[in-house]
Design a protein around this nucleic acid. Sequence first.
DNA 1: CTCAAATAGTTGAGCTAGAAACAATCATAG
DNA 2: CTATGATTGTTTCTAGCTCAACTATTTGAG
Lengths: 162, 162
Amino acid sequence: MNEASATAEAPGTETDVDPHREAWISIVQTHAAVTGRLQEALTGAELPPLPWFEVLATLDRAPEQRLKMGDLAEALVITRGGLTKLVDRLIKAGLLERTFCETDRRVSYATLLPAGVELLAEMRPVVRAELAAAFTANLSVAEADRLRETMDRIRGSACGTS
Amino acid sequence: MNEASATAEAPGTETDVDPHREAWISIVQTHAAVTGRLQEALTGAELPPLPWFEVLATLDRAPEQRLKMGDLAEALVITRGGLTKLVDRLIKAGLLERTFCETDRRVSYATLLPAGVELLAEMRPVVRAELAAAFTANLSVAEADRLRETMDRIRGSACGTS
DNA sequence: CTCAAATAGTTGAGCTAGAAACAATCATAG
DNA sequence: CTATGATTGTTTCTAGCTCAACTATTTGAG
C-alpha cells in the first residue's frame, strides 16, 4: 500500500487530486483484490475457476435455467467469441448442454444440467464466505444497497453514451 | 440489461436476494463496462492500450518518476511476472528505462522517460473525458469520496484476512 | 420473389496474464 | 566466514480472452 504515501507531488506539477479519479482507482484495486481472493479460495478448495461459477450462477438465476449465448455473454461482460469457448469447456465437463431454438435457428441456448446445479451448490458456500468476509463484515445492508445503486448509476451512463 | 427483469425466481428456490452479492455483481459489471469504454476510447484515438496508461500514470505520480518493479506490480494489482513483460514492451517503445539500485543489486526500477511523459500527456485527456462521462456527470464530489472510502474499506478487509 | 443487410454464433490467430521454476542477491545464525 | 533461508526479478509454459473473418439464418426493401 504505497499509493497514498508515495504521493509527495513535486510543487511544479498539476496538483490535481481529482476525487472521481481516486474513486475509480479504488474500484479497480478493490475489484482486483476481491476477485483474486475469490480465485484463491476456489483453487484452494480444489474447485473450478471463478468464470465457471459465474456461468453456473447466472444460468441458475435465469428462467428455465438457460440463456441465449448472446444474453449470457452480455451478463458476464465478455465477448461472444470468448463465451463460446468457455461454454465448450463447461459442456465437456458435463455441467451444461447446448439446446436450440425452434423459431429462430440461429440462436442456441446454454442450458444448466443437474451436474451443474450440483457443482454450483459446492462452489456457492466458498464464494459466499469470501464475499461475506469482504462485504457483510464491513457494510450494513443500507450501505450495500446504496453502493449498488451508485454503481448502477455509473454503469448506466457508461453504457448509454455509446 | 436482463439481470433485473429475468429474476422471476420459481417459488421453490432459495429466494435470497443478498444485497451484498447484488452489490458485488454491480461492481464487477460496472468495472467491466467502464474499463471497456476506456479501452475503446483509447484505441479509437489510435493510442496504446489501457495498461500502458496505468503504468505511465502510476510512475508519473511516484517520487522521481520511478518505482521498484515489485511496488509497481502491487500498485497495478498484477503479478511480477506479468509486469516484467509489460515493462519490456514499454521499454521497447522508448517510454521507460530500467535502472538499477546501488545498495541492493536485486532490485530494478522502472523509470519514466521524457517520451513516456509526452505520451501520457496525450492519453490523459482521453481517459479523463471518459471518466468524467461516467463519474463527474453522475456523482457529487461527496458521493465520490464516500464511494472511495467504502471501496477502500472492502479492500482493506480483503487484503488483511489473508 | 429475390437479394442485400442485419443478426447469432462459431472458429482461428495472436496476445496477454498467471503459475511455477529459476537465478541472483541479500540477511542472518552459527 | 560460511551456509541456509528469504527476497527480487526474470523466464518458461500454458490457459483464456479478444479481434477479425466466417457460416448460417432471418429480416426487409424493391
